[in-house]
Design a protein around this nucleic acid. Structure first.
Length: 892
DNA sequence: TAGAACCCCCTTTTT
DNA sequence: GGGGGTTCTA
């Protein structure tokens, strides 16, 4: 009888638990309820991967392996059954006394470890766990990145492998400095073997767990290989002497530690009984090994990944890890998540089209029931300014329709591409944020101060000591530094040790005074660290080292960036203070330095600020945005020049394209430019092959009107105008922005795929056109010139109106109207030419922000800074001559 | 030794 | 196009 009750209870318990995860689809729920043993989840883009991770952890902690289990902690009673049934029917929580009956082998939250790739992903995981499980339990789950996890382990056990606990973490810049020193030691010419190449090879070795000894022992393919192995060994020696790890070492050395010290390994295996690994497709051999070393005999290891989103092969990630997983863990359960909840089907189909061209994949087709949505908009720009302007147009239209800046992301292949967009947006006053690129912490002055701070934490760190010993200048020259280094080498002590009693060395006699003075400063810093708070210490570093005085002197001399640098240092102190506020009692110098070493820009990216966000596709992995602009879709840019000659590299580029496309939720805008200035040279690029791979039915193409014009005058070969439906102009309003031929857009592409993507662009000169174009911004007279192109109805009118400060009205002014036809009239004459001038009280129309009133005007370097109160978005500042502004002269 | 001019190099993606 | 390193000069 009791057994029957228990059986019934178990069945009800399944129902109850399933209800707790009722919002998941079948596959997701399967993943959640597979609590024990090895589990591989192949999760397509937007398939709710994080949701599954969070729910799976929540299930482990709340119910353990209860679901599907036919056991209960004690035999069930009739009251149990009744209460549970009631809870299910009413949808309320079970009474407290019943709670224990719902758990079977429930896991304590501190027994769970989740490893992610970025801090942001880790943070998001924690945040969602906190929301789902409540503060305490959520916080107790260990969720962290590979690198942070290793740092944490090493902080505890570093001495076991001969490193100090207060080790320093070297970034790429530090690595390069070490490498330069090694080159000098070994007399290597960096023309023969570029430093970058050596660092790369060394990094691959560490990714593959090849030790310096193994590298030296393995038969070298050529002299360079053998040399690189020697360099690797020398580099490692230096790092060990300095008590430092570089990024790769963090993983590599942790693996060594765990592999060689069973006691340490067992400690972690006992502590973390359930492991989850995110972004599994991007793990290296070393990371894979790390994970398997952490996995205990129970083999409760769950990895989540998507082979199609593997974009870090260049950095040692290997897709093999996904295949090897099933081999290393026989009996692995594999679950595929293929339903996409993020994007419209047009976007998803475009993504599928592209990725299908890859051969090296497990095969997976995403689907969605989100509806078709708009087609993917493909825009061909004339140049990168035109591309920027077009994006601004689209964003402007969205804002007018009630959209938000923060819903827009601009994604690109490489950081350099952000510059033209950035400069356009800045001048136009469009709030935006660039993620990545040069990080705050990479600035020279910031790194210098951090170097001071880290030699206080780790006196052995000669690399950072060298960096700042004469910064600001204190008469300790290169010769002196080399003497110190030699002495330190001879005596087997750190350079700082030598400096501390510099007066005992004859060789240093000439530099004794400055050196002892430096030693004094160092001691005062040590003292400051002990007696003051961390942010006060940071301020002391800036002050006592003379850094502040140096910058102030520079500023007084008129060095323009000195003031900026001072400001940055102020910001640095703020950052330290924030760190202290966040960590309270646990704030330490080491902790702070660790944070700045491991935390990237993307982690501090704040979605709540209403700004357009610009970042590389790599940085955007794992993120999503309603509107995505994928720019620079050109051969030589994306796919990048370097990848063209290797099929494997091309496939990685394609996966990157796939990642980019699948970031978009509602609308995707892809653009390519016929000409682009890159690295100070103007290139003409063909549209990317990835564009051609998308089936025409999912996209809608538009070309910059300037290009249209060009082909009409015969400058570009074939008669593109044939494909233009008569009379459709797509004119979209007076934008007034000098450089851009904005908004002509959609009319031109209506109905036909022009096939221009396949066309060869011969470098035809735009004769007779260029001059008109060049003048457009300032002189008004060109309007009629364009209008001349008789058949292109409305075109001339469109252009003229850009400068027709407001004397243009009616239907044409509504940007939303796409197919207004102008009947062959000549262009309107612009009302005025020359620089624009504004006064408080003027009513203006901004291409992006809409209408507003000028509240203040400040002169600035031949231009004006105009402060405008916009009806929709409030007060913004813009540059008068650059912003896409039109003065509305006549009140309507 | 320090400052300034110049030259040269680079530019794929990141923890 | 621009930053950083090197070299030259004071």
């Amino acid at each position: 009888m009791a057994t029957d009750l228990t059986q019934e209870f178990c069945a009800l318990r399944d129902t109850y638990i399933e209800k707790q995860f009722g919002r998941l689809n079948d596959m997701q729920r399967q993943a959640v309820f597979t609590t024990d043993g090895p589990l591989l989840i192949l999760a397509g883009a937007g398939s709710g991967k994080t949701t599954v991770l969070v729910n799976r952890i929540a299930n482990l902690i709340r119910f353990g392996s209860a679901h599907g289990s036919r056991q209960t902690p004690r035999p069930a009673t009739e009251d149990d059954v009744k209460a549970l049934r009631n809870a299910i029917m009413t949808g309320t929580a079970v009474p407290g006394w019943l709670d224990g009956m719902l758990r079977q082998n429930a896991v304590r939250s501190w027994n769970v470890m989740a490893i992610t790739f970025t801090n942001k992903a880790a943070g998001e995981l924690k945040e969602r766990l906190r929301r789902m499980l409540g503060g305490e339990e959520g916080d107790e789950v260990f969720a962290s990145t590979f690198h942070s996890t290793c740092v944490r382990i090493l902080r505890r056990w570093a001495e076991e492998i001969g490193y100090p606990r207060s080790f320093t973490i070297y970034d790429t810049d530090d690595s390069q400095r070490v490498m330069k020193a090694v080159y000098k030691d070994l007399n290597v010419d960096d023309k023969f073997l570029p430093i970058k190449a050596a660092i790369n090879q060394m990094s691959r070795w560490k990714d593959q767990l090849v030790s310096p000894e193994q590298a030296l022992a393995s038969p070298a393919k050529d002299t360079k290989g053998a040399l690189t192995a020697r360099i690797y060994a020398a580099y490692e020696k230096r790092l060990k002497e300095a008590g430092a790890f570089d990024f790769d070492d963090l993983i590599y050395q942790t693996v060594q530690l765990l592999a060689e010290h069973p006691d340490v390994r067992e400690f972690y295996q006992n502590k973390y009984r359930y492991l989850l690994v995110d972004e599994y497709q991007d793990t290296s051999v070393a990371q894979f090994r790390l994970v398997s070393l952490l996995t205990g005999p129970e083999r409760n290891i769950c990895v989540v990944g998507d082979d199609d989103q593997s974009i870090y092969r260049f950095r040692g990630a290997t897709i093999e890890n996904i295949l090897n997983f099933e081999k290393l863990y026989p009996g692995t359960k594999t679950i595929r998540l293929e339903q996409n909840y993020r994007s419209t089907s047009n976007i998803l189909n475009a993504a599928n089209c592209v990725i299908q061209h890859n051969t090296e994949r497990k095969g997976k087709t995403l689907w969605t029931d989100n509806g078709e949505g708009d087609k993917v908009q493909v825009y061909t720009a004339e140049n990168e300014q035109d591309e920027a302007s077009h994006i601004a147009d689209v964003i402007g239209q969205h804002l007018k329709a009630g959209g938000h800046l923060a819903d827009h992301a601009i994604l690109y292949r490489m950081n350099a591409q952000s510059a033209p967009i950035e400069s356009y947006f800045t001048r136009a006053g469009i709030p935006h944020k660039i993620v990545g690129g040069q990080r705050f912490n990479d600035r020279k002055e910031v790194k210098d101060i951090h170097s001071y701070m880290s030699i206080v934490a780790n006196p052995r760190d000669d690399v950072r000591l060298r960096r700042i010993i004469n910064e600001p200048a204190r008469k300790i020259g290169a010769t002196t530094v080399e003497v110190i280094a030699d002495l330190a080498g001879q005596e087997g002590v750190s350079m700082l040790d030598i400096i501390s009693h510099a007066d005992q060395y004859a060789k240093l006699s000439r530099a004794v005074m400055p050196l002892l003075k430096f030693w004094q400063i160092y001691q005062r810093l040590q003292d400051s660290l002990e007696t003051r708070t961390l942010d006060e210490f940071a301020a002391d570093v800036i002050e006592l080292t003379g850094y502040k005085a140096m910058l102030e002197a520079d500023a007084a001399k008129g060095h323009e960036d000195a003031a900026d640098r001072l400001q940055n240092l102020g910001q640095l102190v703020n950052n330290v203070k924030n760190y202290c506020d966040q960590h309270g009692e646990e704030a330490t110098l080491e902790g702070y330095l660790e944070d700045i070493a491991l935390i990237s820009d993307i982690d501090s990216y704040n979605e709540s600020a209403d700004q357009v966000v610009l970042m590389t596709i790599h940085s955007a992995k794992g993120l999503e945005f309603p509107y995505v602009f994928l720019i620079g879709m050109e051969e030589g840019v994306f796919p990048s020049e370097m990848s063209k000659y290797s099929e494997a590299d091309l496939e990685e580029e394609r996966r990157l394209a796939y990642v980019g496309i699948t970031r978009a939720k509602k609308e995707l805008y892809i653009s390519n430019s016929v000409s682009r200035m890159l690295y100070g040279r103007t290139q003409r690029n063909e549209p990317s092959r990835f564009l051609r791979e998308i089936e025409p039915e999912y996209i809608e193409e538009t070309r910059s009107p300037v290009l249209e014009q060009r082909s009409r005058f015969g400058g570009w070969g074939d008669s593109y105008s044939d494909t233009v439906p008569g009379g459709a102009s797509g004119y979209s309003g007076p934008s007034g922005w000098g450089r851009s031929a904005s908004g002509y857009g959609n009319g031109y592409s209506a109905g036909s795929r022009s096939g221009y993507l396949n066309r060869e662009y011969n470098a035809g000169e735009s004769r007779g056109f260029g001059s008109a174009y060049a003048n457009r911004g300032s002189s008004g007279g060109h309007g009629s010139g364009y209008g001349r192109s008789g058949g292109s109805t409305g075109y001339g009118a469109g252009y003229g109106s850009q400068y027709g400060s407001g004397n243009y009205s009616g239907a044409a002014q509504k940007k939303t109207e796409k197919h207004i036809s102008f009947t062959g009239t000549p262009a309107q004459k612009p009302a005025s030419a020359g620089p624009k001038h504004y006064e408080p009280g003027d009513i203006v129309e901004h291409k992006v922000f809409g209408r507003g009133q000028v509240v203040a005007v400040k002169p600035a370097a031949g231009d004006q800074i105009v402060e405008i109160n916009f009806e929709k978005v409030g007060i913004k500042k813009t540059m008068a001559n650059f912003a896409p502004l039109t003065k509305i002269t006549a009140e309507e």
